[in-house]
Design a protein around this nucleic acid. Structure first.
Lengths: 207, 207
DNA sequence: TAGATTGTTAATCGATTAACAATC
DNA sequence: TAGATTGTTAATCGATTAACAATC
């Protein structure tokens, strides 16, 4: 495992492999080939083999990949083998939806703190979480070893929140606000803005 | 404007340009160069010029781009110059969040119908929308000229919903469920799955 | 005119796919 | 052994960036 630079395109495919492999695991399927994976995921088998080969030799020639073994490997690559704590800022509808989402039950990612800038929401309950004021963000992140921040505030507030996350020592941010977040490049920012997503969809409408 | 194939990468950048140009418009800024756009958006100016040039000659040499003119052009390219109706299936937290979102107030995209498979939610009110049973999907989509479908149901139900959307004549789908949707390729599917997004973020954590 | 900036071609860079020797 | 499938190299394809003539 040398220090080859892994492209973002490769990294983004790993969760997709993981997801499908987990499905195979649930179906008690023990082994899978890149050909059959490729067929199910609508991807080129060579690409799948190459993606995996960046991280090691996980397959067996003439046989394919052991499903459970590969799941374990990908989880390790994605660092999902450890518990990762997440904080969310913005207790609006979207924020609440994410908190409620059971996704974090698997995959060792868990939203453990919610913040909001507006007084009205402080103290509100979202499942087992209580909405905290922004003033507590820094300390909570430090205390609870929170490493990822999710931003679900309106666009105009998002850059400030991002800054606060960064100052508090968060390592990565998932931004749902439709705005460009500018942070030092040590901090990874992914965008999940569905306005953009919807608008680019419109391009493909027929007329 | 020949029949050059426009790459998806280009199309996905157009909404980003549009967003920033709208900001400039609000600030009463009349003209912008690819250089300053590039600086603000952290993109290569040549790329911006090239992207725009696929669709026409929108700039003026020595001057730059007229903000309002360019906004209009991009809106036309993205087909946002017409009212586009959207239906949503899955009245859970995420679905409600999207319905509440005011994004559709601008940009002529509007969620005009919500459906859910579970009896319990039928008849519930989300703003000015009433949750309808799946049995009404087909007819409502036809009657109201709905062209885009949003899927916010659990992964196991998503493929069925996608099929129903397709059969009802929807032209494009935005899928929030963490599952691969397979449809005839005339129907454009974009994925907005934040589980995947979060997992690939984890890769970039420090250790 | 001089300075600025586009539109576009050519050069570069990176990602995907094909092909195949190695080997289970 | 014969068939299957990997890991990897080489070929292809596509996207980004640099460079610059055209021109406002």
């Amino acid at each position: 495992m040398k220090k080859v630079k892994i492209s973002d395109a490769v990294v983004r495919r790993l969760p997709i492999y993981l997801r499908f492999l987990t499905e195979l695991h649930n179906q008690k399927i023990k082994t899978v080939s890149s050909a059959s994976l490729g067929q199910k995921l609508d991807m080129n088998p060579a690409q799948i083999r190459k993606d995996l080969a960046y991280f090691g030799e996980f397959g067996q020639k003439g046989v394919g990949y052991d499903v459970d073994f590969l799941i374990d490997k990908i989880r390790n690559i994605l660092k999902l083998n450890q518990q990762i704590y997440v904080a969310l800022v913005g207790a609006g509808n979207l924020g609440r939806a994410l908190c409620n989402y059971n996704m974090y039950l698997k995959d060792n990612m868990k939203i453990v703190a919610v913040f909001d800038a507006g007084d009205s929401k402080i103290g509100e309950r979202i499942n087992d979480l209580i909405v905290q004021p922004m003033a507590e963000l820094r300390q909570t992140i430090a205390e609870r070893a929170i490493r990822i921040g999710i931003i679900t505030v309106p666009a105009d507030e998002a850059p400030t929140v991002a800054k606060q996350f960064a100052d508090a020592g968060v390592e990565a941010i998932l931004n749902f606000a439709p705005v460009k977040i500018r942070l030092p490049k040590e901090i990874r920012v992914h965008n999940a803005d569905f306005t953009t997503e919807l608008q680019s969809l419109a391009f493909y409408l027929d007329e």
